Simulated scan of single mutants.
Amino acid sequence: MGIDLSLIWAVIIVFGIMMYVIMDGFDLGIGILFPFVKDDGERDIMMNTVAPVWDGNETWLVLGGAALFGAFPLAYAVVLSALYLPLIFMLLGLIFRGVAFEFRFKAKERKRHIWDKAFIGGSLTATFFQGVALGAYIDGLPVVNRTYAGGSLDWLAPFPIFCGFALIAAYALLGCTWLIMKTEGRLQGQMHDLARPLAFVLLGVTGVVSLWTPLAHAEIAERWFSLPNLFYFLPVPLLVLVTFYGLLRTVHNNRNYSPFILTLVLIFLGYSGLGISLWPNIIPPSVSIWQAAAPPQSQGFILVGALFIIPFILMYTAWSYYVFRGKVTPDQGYH
């Protein structure tokens, strides 16, 4: 029995995207939360919590895109053809946000508000269009003769737009619980106050997406609600409810680390639900990972490089988060 290189590459891409969602999620969430914090000093603290790591977080986005190009070129061609505009808007948001991140601390006080607005706008734009791209992907991409057969504006539909707003809620909660973990005093208290309503918003939009998807796609409904699949997959929504209750309890008890960890669990459960709905199709609704795969020789060749570089990415990521652990304060920075 040979090695299933397509399956290995699918796992690598899924892992890379999950790492990006986790790490750049709270990073973008801080920009989304900026309008709720008016004090310049507290905004400085918010940015300083991610200043040492924010650019490294996007390594996983690059890895996922490069892996998709090398291992599943058909999926890369179809997905980019379908989603050029939302992905371009996402990249423009990330560019504005990155420039604002660097220039805000160097700007004169009377001009700092310009970079604050760029940081907020870039974070919202990048997050919204990530969600739009995800929603359009879930809705399905028509393929005829191994070519995208849809239009360039097919993503302008109710479900993708709703997914854009849903992802804003998810990243906002990630950023909020990250700041609970990394800050003290009034700012931390404000984030505790925001976490509860954000959690309810996230639960609501998750419920809507979870119902909308099977109602709009009969094959997904069949996968979730047919027997015995229903019993196999029922733990996912039950764990969402249990995790949500635990999140509310830890926020109510003013815990530091538990809210962020439980929010990560919520994101992971949502991600796993998406995987259950779409697997093994890499181009929904009908093109599987094996149909979109590059030749085994190509997959094997690039796998050698991936297995060499991914451990280094994991090591420097872990080391950077270890070095910059602890709380951030206005007078001492990290301590």
Rank of each mutant, 00 (worst) to 15 (best):
R110F: 09
K111Q: 14
K111F: 15
K111P: 01
R112W: 06
H113N: 12
W115H: 12
W115A: 09
D116P: 10
K117H: 14
A118E: 14
F119S: 02
I120P: 05
G121C: 07
L124W: 06
T125C: 13
F128G: 01
F128Y: 10
F129W: 11
F129D: 09
G131F: 05
G131R: 06
G131L: 09
L134V: 15
G135N: 12
A136E: 10
Y137L: 13
I138C: 00
D139W: 03
G140E: 06
L141F: 02
L141E: 11
V143N: 08
V143A: 11
V143S: 10
N145S: 15
R146A: 15
T147W: 12
A149T: 00
G150A: 07
G151S: 08
D154G: 14
W155M: 10
W155C: 06
L156I: 13
A157H: 14
P160G: 08
P160N: 10
I161P: 02
I161F: 05
C163I: 08
G164A: 07
G164C: 08
F165W: 04
A169E: 04
A170V: 11
Y171I: 15
G175C: 08
C176I: 09
C176K: 00
T177M: 07
T177P: 04
T177I: 11
T177L: 09
L179I: 05
I180D: 01
I180P: 02
K182W: 04
R186V: 08
L187T: 04
Q188L: 05
G189V: 00
L194M: 13
A195W: 02
A195M: 03
R196G: 02
F200K: 10
V201N: 03
V201P: 05
L202K: 01
T206I: 10
G207N: 06
V209A: 13
T213V: 15
P214V: 12
L215Q: 11
L215W: 11
A216H: 06
H217G: 04
A218W: 06
E219Y: 15
E219P: 07
I220R: 01
I220D: 01
I220S: 04
R223I: 14
